[in-house]
């Protein structure tokens, strides 16, 4: 598969990111190849203000590195700094 061809991803937002994005879930068609690229896109078009270095990312319910290649259909969650307890 062409790595730069647009693909459909399922996004889910929580807490501060949910409020900034204005939705909990979002299906996007994107040419972003990695979570890092995807987050830069979202910052530009959705006005997300949290700096990327504060975030972790879970793809298909597993924490992965920000430069992990994304596949069509992936479920991507950017995780803001947690504050349980």
């Amino acid at each position: 598969m062409n790595p730069t061809a647009p693909r459909l991803l399922q996004l889910q937002f929580f807490a501060a990111l949910r409020e900034q994005a204005g939705c909990s879930t979002l299906a996007v068609e994107t040419a972003a190849r990695t979570p890092a690229e995807l987050y830069r896109e979202l910052q530009a078009c959705r006005g997300l203000t949290l700096p990327a270095e504060l975030l972790r990312v879970a793809v298909n319910a597993r924490y992965v590195a920000m430069d992990t290649p994304l596949q069509a259909g992936d479920h991507v969650v950017f995780i803001p700094p947690v504050a349980g307890g």
Binding site: F14, P80, G84, G85
Partner: peptide, 26 residues
């Protein structure tokens, strides 16, 4: 409790008396 505060994907939002709100750590 230490691991939970570090790892558990749970967030909290503070509500202040003046109506302002803030996501902790964000």
């Amino acid at each position: 409790i230490e691991e939970l505060k570090r790892r558990l994907p749970v967030w909290k939002k503070e509500h202040h008396p003046d109506g302002a709100t803030e996501w902790v750590n964000c």
